[in-house]
Design a protein around this nucleic acid. Structure first.
Lengths: 137, 137
DNA sequence: CTAAATGCAAAACCTTTGCCTCAAA
DNA sequence: TTTGAGGCAAAGGTTTTGCATTTAG
């Protein structure tokens, strides 16, 4: 089974180019959830020939192939991350920090809800927006 | 306690104008989740003086006052609905139809997850994307 | 060799804003 | 009367696209 993005792209019969390899590295090495412009800046720092158009075309291709996922945190920009096991996001509304978590019970519940409504669950998005609890006040 | 959007706006000390009343009616009467342009088209059909700029300014004002809610279904446009009791959305990926549902167990679980991560839950968004189950195949 | 990918710049969208006029309270 | 709202058109920000050129397979 494939492990990294490059292998997954190969499995998906995606033609590999120098630019795509650079974008793959940027996404794999990101520990945040970069938008297209951030991916462009990081990739362009490594390879000056990469254009923003290629970034947009590439993330769309990768998303459609299912090797990356597109996220929206409500600010009008799409953000991207490598597709790993499904997980959810909690956004700290003060710092913007994004915490990832998984919750098997939640996963099961969503499947059940969709099934009860007569649907097969194809995809889902959950974002929690919260504020750090303080011991005082 | 306030019942309709007009009363809620009054409670929020929102200055009332003819255009805002028309937009309120459009949102109250919508049985879908219209985006700004759809609200504009429906409101403009009733009152030709309403401009798209006013629609955008009004939905932002109403959202900040908490009397309507802004949704994103992943197509890059914001959609709006009257703020009622909290509920979630299931999007039929074939027809685009949006089904609303509530699920107390899910609500409780989200609160608990946030708390366990050290956060007070301020807001959250859940969308399920599904395909209608068929008896055959 | 052929089909597909890229860069560049322009265009397409959605949304916001400046400015002047008009209306609510 | 005063402060805020609206219309219009221009500008802003993100994403897509047309076209000529380059490159992967």
């Amino acid at each position: 089974m494939a492990k990294n993005l490059l292998e997954k792209c190969s499995q998906s019969k995606i033609r590999m180019t120098a630019q795509r390899q650079t974008i793959i590295k940027v996404i794999e090495q990101a520990d945040d959830h970069p938008d297209a412009d951030q991916i462009y800046l990081r990739a362009n720092a490594v390879d000056k020939t990469i254009s923003i158009a290629t970034v947009y075309r590439t993330v769309r291709l990768f998303e459609q192939a299912g090797v990356i996922e597109r996220l929206e945190f409500g600010d009008g920009k799409s953000r991207y991350e490598e597709a790993r096991g499904h997980h959810e996001h909690l956004v700290d509304i003060d710092s913007g920090e994004v915490i990832e978590f998984t919750h098997p019970e939640l996963e099961a519940l969503k499947e059940k809800i969709a099934a009860d409504l007569g649907y097969d669950l194809v995809n889902h998005r959950l974002e929690l927006y919260g504020r750090k609890k303080t011991s005082d006040q």
